[in-house]
């Protein structure tokens, strides 16, 4: 077995290098956000929190943050609700054309976002729907729902049908059994789904770029700032806050997901997707 161990060692070195490659950009981000220079390069010139302070007095940024938060919260709620319906239907029932229907619902997962964006743009302009936060929400719900379904499928799949049957035998209605037995068991999955959809919507750029009209979201605002070299340190500071927030939310979502797995007595085999 020496060969296998040696192979494992080589792979381990490779895996660590790969993680360095994966994390390089988001590790450099805070380094430059706190660097006292408008030029983004090494060597570093000193520590400053000036760029973060500057963020406080940009009204356009604040309204973009509020717009994004509003869109992300509503998107998370709707796409999780749609996700619950689809995941429950797919794991509990057999129905005609199931693979086809689920396939269509999951397509946005691999479709280039620009295709989603332009096709929605064409339709909204034709039916005379003015571009606003609403149109962004409609697009975000479409791309977030497949992620919600992927997470919720995991929660619903590991449920024991006999639990529900027992509740019905004891006199609960179908809805009562769902609310009292199923819902508490899948709750951690639902929370994870809400958090993931929130994060995707918060970070999404292309659909918002095409559909946000005169209310820019945070990424659209950020895109506008990238053109001005003197704004770059402030962009780095803003990016740092965004990335830290995303990572915290994702860790929280993962924690909920694992708690859900433990609650249903399953064993954990991997991440979200």
């Amino acid at each position: 077995m020496a060969g296998v161990r040696g192979q494992g060692h080589g792979l381990r070195v490779y895996a660590v290098l790969y993680l360095v490659f994966l994390y390089a950009p988001i590790v450099l981000l805070p380094i430059f956000a706190f660097n006292d220079s408008t030029i983004i390069a090494f060597p570093l010139s000193g520590f400053t929190t000036q760029w973060f302070v500057e963020l406080a007095d940009v009204p356009a940024l604040h309204s973009a943050v509020l717009t994004s938060l509003k869109i992300a919260v509503i998107t998370a709620l709707i796409s999780t609700l749609l996700g619950i319906c689809a995941a429950r239907a797919a794991t509990r029932y057999r129905f005609p054309a199931k693979a086809g229907i689920m396939g269509v619902i999951m397509v946005p997962l691999v479709l280039p976002e620009i295709i989603v964006a332009v096709s929605l743009l064409v339709v909204f302009l034709q039916i005379g729907l003015e571009l606003s936060s609403l149109t962004v929400i409609l697009g975000h719900v479409l791309i977030c729902t497949p992620f919600c379904i992927a997470i919720l499928n995991g929660s619903f799949q590991s449920l024991d049908v006999s639990l529900e049957e027992a509740a019905v035998d004891l006199g609960e209605s179908g809805w009562g059994a769902f609310r009292l037995v199923i819902l508490p068991l899948v709750m951690p999955g639902i929370v994870a789904s809400l958090l993931i959809a929130f994060t995707i919507s918060m970070d999404e750029f292309i659909i918002a770029f095409f559909l946000s009209g005169s209310d820019p979201t945070l990424p659209v605002y950020l895109w506008g700032q990238l053109r001005f070299p003197q704004r770059l340190p402030v962009v780095m500071a803003l990016g740092t806050i965004l990335v830290v927030a995303s990572i915290l939310i994702i860790i929280l979502a993962e924690w909920f997901r694992r708690r859900g797995v433990a609650k249903r007595g399953g064993s954990d085999s991997g991440g979200f997707l």
Binding site: I26, L28, L29, D203, P219, L222, G239, L242
Partner: peptide, 10 residues
């Protein structure tokens, strides 16, 4: 899960 825009910019 972090902003795609930020990563590309980095």
């Amino acid at each position: 899960w972090t902003s795609y825009l930020i990563r590309v910019f980095l």
